[in-house]
Each structure stands twice: as structure tokens, then as C-alpha cells.
């Protein structure tokens, strides 16, 4: 589904790997090694060279906004541009079922973003990014700020998307989580990735 070939940018690459439809691949490696850079490069948020192809279509062949609607990057620290939570959603009512399934009350839509906890924001960003049905998810530690119950809820929600054929590249420092959610594991060293069999190199 997603093919990455010779992807390079300063501090990264060349990186080659592929992702099948409905597959979840974990990505681990020490902080600062370039995992976020890789995700951003795939989403075309930073200039990079090399081929990134989704279902046979190269990223240069599609306008960048459309590419990012299909290949969606979830930042470790999501950004907010308006005051209220619901202003960040095209249709808040449509988002409510997902919000509930992540153990948040629907009234949170009226809350100012500034008053939310990091974990609440991370869950809302997850819902926000899933609304337009992207085909590939680039997840940068999507559950890092969540308590165990919320983390399980988030993993379940993403697993449901995976079952629908969505491909995922999931950055995590938690080897147990990597084994739980992913069937293939990549490790990043010196700006390059290699396959690992053990659920990622670094311990939880």
C-alpha cells in the first residue's frame, strides 16, 4: 500500500520500507534519532527526496493537502488553532461517538483547549485526525500521555481502523505496546531503519 524508497532529508535516510493495507508496523529507537523526522517526511511536511508511493501514486503526483488527507501525521504534541475544542472539528456531532469511545464526555466540545490535560488533548487529536478517513496513519507516540484505561481504548479504536484496511506506522518507546499492536517492528539507528524481530530494541 505505502512504499518508501530512498527517502532522505538532513539527519535522515536513506530509508526504505513498505506497509501493507491493514498492517501495523511499530517504529522504535532512542529519542532524537529521527523517528519524528521520518514521519514528517512521509507526510511531506518537510522537504525530502526519494520516492513515497501510496497505492501506485507518487506523492508528487497529488497536491500536498490531498496527500496529507490520505497519509495522516499525528504529532506527538498536537497543535490547536482555535479556542474551543469543537472549532477544530468540521462536524463535532459526527465526532462524538469516537470521543465517547476514548472515555471523554461529549460536553468536552465546548471546553477551551487551554484548560484540557495533555492526555485529553492527545485523545481529541486522535479523533480529529481520524474523522476524514485517512488511508495511512503516521502515529508519533499516540498514547504517551494516556492512563492505562484510555490507552487500551485508543489501541482498540486504532485496531478497528486497522481491520478496515488502514495501514499504520506507530512510533512507540514501549516494547510491550509494540508487540501488542504491531506485527512487524522497525528500529531506527543513525537515521536509518532496520527490521527487528523482538518488538523493538529499547525496553519500556
Amino acid at each position: 500500500m505505502l512504499m518508501v524508497e530512498g527517502l532522505r532529508r538532513p539527519g535522515l535516510g536513506p530509508v526504505d520500507f513498505s506497509l501493507s493495507a491493514g498492517e501495523c508496523v511499530s517504529l522504535s529507537g532512542p529519542s532524537g534519532v529521527g523517528k519524528t523526522l521520518l514521519l514528517r517526511a512521509i507526510a511531506d511536511l518537510d522537504p525530502s527526496t526519494g520516492r513515497v508511493v501510496l497505492d501506485g501514486v507518487g506523492r508528487e503526483a497529488v497536491p500536498a493537502p490531498r496527500w496529507r488527507r490520505m497519509v495522516r501525521y499525528f504529532a506527538a504534541e498536537p497543535g490547536w488553532w482555535a479556542e474551543r475544542v469543537s472549532d477544530h472539528f468540521a462536524d463535532w456531532d459526527a465526532a462524538v461517538p469516537l470521543v465517547r469511545s476514548l472515555l471523554l464526555p461529549p460536553e468536552i466540545g465546548k471546553a477551551p483547549v487551554a484548560r484540557l490535560s495533555t492526555g485529553e488533548r492527545q485523545r481529541l487529536a486522535l479523533v480529529r485526525g481520524l474523522m476524514a478517513r485517512p488511508l495511512v496513519l503516521l502515529l508519533d507516540e499516540p498514547t504517551a500521555a494516556l492512563d492505562p484505561a484510555a490507552r487500551t481504548a485508543a489501541e482498540d479504536m486504532l485496531a478497528a481502523r486497522q481491520a478496515e484496511g488502514v495501514g499504520m506506522l506507530w512510533v512507540t518507546h514501549d516494547a510491550a505496546q509494540a508487540r501488542r499492536v504491531a506485527t512487524r517492528h522497525l528500529v531506527m539507528e543513525d537515521g536509518r531503519v532496520r527490521e527487528a524481530n523482538d518488538g523493538g530494541g529499547d525496553a519500556a
Binding site: 511536511l45 496529507r68 488553532w81 480529529r128
Partner: peptide, 9 residues
């Protein structure tokens, strides 16, 4: 972060 969140969406 806010601008890039919009771009990523």
C-alpha cells in the same frame, strides 16, 4: 504546532 496541525489535516 497549530499551523502544522492544520496542514497535516
Amino acid at each position: 504546532a497549530a499551523v502544522e496541525a492544520r496542514l497535516a489535516l
